[in-house]
């Protein structure tokens, strides 16, 4: 699905990440942890070609990211659902339309999809807020909407950046359960989070690999987690 090989990235001249090698195999479940500022978001952005590696290679669905045209990238992104840490909505459209946006832009908004949309909005507990505008949402509501948007396209890969950062424990577990369910349906899932309790809760439900970013490298985390 997504492969990084000796990939490196730096925003300026200093490399932030280097020697990153990772393969997100189909159906795998990964957690990514690390201190704030370690480069988790940066790593995810490499994974959906929002950033191009400054060294090494990143491949999305067998295609070298650096060689992809913008159309190729758009097509790849239709197969990757991303929960952005800062959510990224269109503030002038109601929540429901924001959640449906990936369908809209790929011309796939059909009757069946509309039914799925209804169900999904209920699932993330936003039925009452479906007609609100994104700026009117609480932080947790925004994150739930972002998760709903990430999965609406039935993507092959789901990359979630702090999807439970602003929600209570009960909602965190619900969102986690949704992601685990999707993983059981064969989706590849990667969650970047600080929340070790969430990782422990997940390990009870699914066999997940835990990665840690630190010092610009990526390691498999120890068994303490």
């Amino acid at each position: 699905m997504i492969e990084l090989e000796d990939a490196a990235y730096g925003y300026g001249t200093e490399p932030l990440l280097s020697e990153i090698g990772l393969r997100l195999a189909p159906g795998s479940f990964h957690f990514l942890t690390g201190p704030s500022g370690a480069g988790k978001t940066t790593f995810l952005r490499l994974c959906y070609a929002d950033l191009l590696p400054t060294g090494g290679s990143v491949r999305l669905f067998e295609q070298e990211a650096k060689a992809m045209s913008r159309d190729d990238i758009a097509k790849a992104r239709q197969r990757i659902g991303v929960v952005h840490q800062d959510c990224q909505f269109l503030d002038h459209l109601p929540v429901a339309e924001n959640i449906a946006l990936p369908l809209t832009v790929s011309g796939r908004k059909t009757g069946q999809e509309a039914a799925n949309l209804e169900e999904l909005i209920g699932w993330v507990g936003l039925r009452a807020r479906a007609d609100a505008l994104p700026p009117e949402l609480s932080g947790g509501e925004r994150q739930r909407a972002a998760l709903a948007r990430a999965v609406i396209m039935d993507p092959d890969v789901i990359l979630a950046d702090e999807p439970t950062g602003n929600v209570d424990w009960e909602m965190s577990l619900r969102l986690l359960t949704l992601l685990v369910e999707l993983n059981k349906m064969g989706k590849t899932v990667l969650i970047a989070t600080h929340d070790l309790a969430l990782i422990r809760a997940a390990k009870a439900q699914v066999s997940a690999r835990v990665l840690r970013i630190g010092g610009g490298r990526i390691h498999l985390a120890g068994a303490d987690l």
């Binding site: 758009a74 790849a76 990224q88 832009v105």
Partner: peptide, 15 residues
């Protein structure tokens, strides 16, 4: 900002 979001959700330039 709108263009950025549209791209993130997989909109093509043509769209």
């Amino acid at each position: 900002g709108v263009i950025k979001v549209l791209r993130l959700v997989g909109a093509r330039d043509n769209y």
